[in-house]
């Protein structure tokens, strides 16, 4: 079995600051991490590897520094890593990104057929959740998004059964391989990489593909040129501003603070008193 896991290197959005005057992202000092949702997908793929002796290839598109993300994936146990990097990929929206990644996966298939493609449910920088479905459509893979459990995998019948988070419940879906799975967070815990794993990953040869190596057939469909959407304006949000009225009490005792807060709350917002009363009764 051959599994491709798509990952992305992202700035840790929890640490991003916006320059107050220029409204630009201040990247300095913001660490680049592997998109946390992609690690959940990688772990799920590695579990299948442990069970079925699968070959796991990790694939990413990004600047040369994205190598770090691939090395990390290798240290956890991926067998092979491919970096798509080319100035021509720059500025891609999700449609152009899925075109490039799908082309690369077609190239990967030439060496070894691919049974499953894994991706995180979304990235923490773009948050679109669109690239996974895009790849599935382009490669004609069965598409399983927001998967919270792989129930069964039958390699002989080439069938997979998964639980998928839907609105108001969980769908149990059975489909044929090859399939693309985007994985919901919280369904597994990433394994640890040992020191020898990390050394091995550091020495592991990477495949670095430019647009030709990635088998891009139509260069007008990648990068900014291949992106139907463009950003016309970037601006800072005007957030809700309301300086909190800080509850002050003479004693600083939590009990007094709580009582004072309730009194203020119910005086100013009598509808909340009614709401809470209704729910409790």
């Amino acid at each position: 079995m051959h599994i491709v896991v798509c990952i992305k290197q992202v700035p840790d959005s929890a640490q991003i600051r916006v320059h107050p005057v220029t409204n630009t992202i201040m990247r300095q000092g913001v660490p680049a991490i592997v998109n946390p949702y992609d690690l959940v997908a990688l772990e799920e793929a590695l579990r299948l590897k442990d069970r079925y002796q699968a070959h796991v290839t990790v694939l990413t598109m990004g600047p040369p520094q994205a190598e770090t993300a691939l090395r990390k994936a290798l240290s956890f146990g991926a067998d092979e890593a491919i970096l798509l990097t080319d100035r021509a990929f720059a500025g891609a929206d999700t449609l152009a990104t899925s075109y490039a990644l799908a082309s690369a996966i077609r190239q990967i298939q030439k060496d070894m057929p691919v049974d499953l493609v894994f991706a995180g449910k979304q990235t923490i920088d773009g948050d679109t959740a669109q690239v996974g479905p895009g790849i599935a459509v382009r490669l004609g893979l069965q598409m399983l998004t927001y998967v919270c459990k792989i129930e069964a995998l039958d390699l002989e019948q080439r069938e997979i059964t998964v639980q998928r988070r839907a609105e108001g419940g969980v769908q149990v879906l059975k489909t044929r391989l090859p399939a693309l799975i985007t994985v919901l967070e919280g369904i597994n815990e990433m394994r640890f990489a040992t020191m020898p794993d990390m050394f091995r990953a550091a020495r592991h040869p990477l495949k670095v593909w430019d647009k030709d190596a990635a088998g891009i057939e139509d260069a007008t469909r990648i990068g900014l040129k291949g992106s139907p959407t463009v950003v016309s304006k970037v601006f800072a949000p005007t957030p809700r501003t309301q300086k909190a009225e800080i509850v002050q009490t003479q004693s600083d005792q939590p009990r007094d603070q709580a009582a004072t807060l309730l009194a203020k709350l119910f005086t100013k917002f009598p509808q909340l008193r009614a709401e809470i009363g209704r729910r409790a009764s």
């Binding site: 991003i16 916006v18 463009v230 601006f235």
Partner: peptide
Amino acid sequence: RPTFGGSLLCTIVTLNY
């Protein structure tokens, strides 16, 4: 839509599609 975890907003248009 918000971007970079909500730090910025960006307005996006679809061109000739």
